[in-house]
Write a protein that binds this DNA or RNA. Structure first.
Lengths: 118, 118
DNA sequence: TAGTTAGTAAAGCAATTGCTTGACTAACAA
DNA sequence: TTGTTAGTCAAGCAATTGCTTTACTAACTA
């Protein structure tokens, strides 16, 4: 379990990361955290759900590695982990770049062999 | 229903996009498609599941706007929609950039007020 | 000390996922 | 024409999600 979490710091699990980002409430939390650290209740403030539900969303974000937290007194303060955000970004960038190279090659091919339509 | 799909071409639904990317099978399909168009069965080739299941995954990808397809004869050919990939990328980039500006401001603040630890 | 606040844990529940199988259609091949 | 291939549709089913409520603990406040 601990090892699991450590592994994610080294190499994020994209299943967990994208799943975490697939929920509008969790994205709003990431959005809020991108402006600076916040407590669990602060994150839930705009969300019209019980605190227990907010806690569960935060747990999903932490399990993905997108969010880190530490508890002082009775309040848990969360902050963003940019490395994991970056790894999701990177995966997408790579696929898109690959596709755009493919498109370029197709363009060259079509330029060389004029005449064929769609 | 048609309108739904059209809206996604104008402004992608990130819930659907990130959810589509949260599955390893579907990511493998996007990966494959980044190297060029492919049929539904080709996409399913490395996936150890029934063709019906593959079709369902392709439907999830299409509903998200990440993948476009057209049918010729009995084969449906799929290709990537880079615009939607880019919009997911963009959302992440923005949050990360925002957080990094926040970090920078914190760095300046700490540089100006030396002496305080964590 | 008594009361409030911040968060957790657990159980329960309806809705959604990610498959399966089986029946079917249309297109291509021999 | 007969068979095979590519894909689709519909049920059905176990596992997972995204909440809820209740009960609880620990920490701060008056």
């Amino acid at each position: 379990m601990v090892k699991h979490v450590l592994n994610q710091l080294l190499e994020p699990d994209l299943d967990l990361v994208f799943h975490a980002l697939a929920d509008p409430g969790r994205r709003s939390m990431v959005e809020r955290l991108s402006e600076g650290p916040a407590s669990v209740s602060e994150l839930g403030l705009p969300l019209a759900m019980s605190l227990a539900a907010v806690v569960q969303h935060v747990q999903v974000l932490e399990a993905s590695g997108l969010v880190l937290s530490h508890k002082v007194g009775r309040t848990r303060t969360c902050r963003i982990n940019p490395a994991v955000l970056r790894s999701a970004e990177h995966w997408i960038t790579q696929r898109r770049a690959r596709w755009e190279r493919t498109l370029d090659r197709l363009g060259e091919y079509l330029a060389e062999n004029e005449g064929e339509g769609q």
